[in-house]
């Protein structure tokens, strides 16, 4: 899940080297914290949160496959 979010985020932003993902894994849930360069924040959130929503949906599907619930936080 971490690799997935990292790959997607890096593909979306102008500064892929500034993408950081921290994963906090619990027994049943996973929290993924995404940090990007401040100039790229719009690139991972999108108009009306459209991109952030898509990222969350896809990560949640990946987590479901592992029997977990995933929460994606975008830090600014």
């Amino acid at each position: 899940m971490k690799d997935l979010l990292e790959y997607l985020a890096k593909s979306l932003v102008d500064n892929p080297n500034d993408v950081q993902v921290e994963m906090i894994e619990g027994e049943r849930s996973v929290i993924l914290q995404l940090k990007v360069n401040p100039v790229d924040i719009g690139k991972v959130i999108g108009k009306g949160g459209r991109i952030a929503q898509a990222l969350r949906t896809l990560i949640k599907a990946a987590a479901t496959k592992r029997g977990k619930n995933a929460i994606v936080e975008i830090l600014d």
Binding site: L8, S11, L12, R50, I51, Q53, A54, L55, R56, T57, L58, A61, T64, K65
Partner: peptide
């Protein structure tokens, strides 16, 4: 094998995948 998972409720996951692939491809 995981078609149902990938499609998601009402095609939600598939939409998300398509949105993100479009954005990745654009670069």
């Amino acid at each position: 094998e995981d078609a149902a998972l990938l499609i998601g409720k009402g095609g939600n996951t598939l939409e998300a995948l398509q949105t993100l692939v479009n954005l990745c491809a654009r670069r």
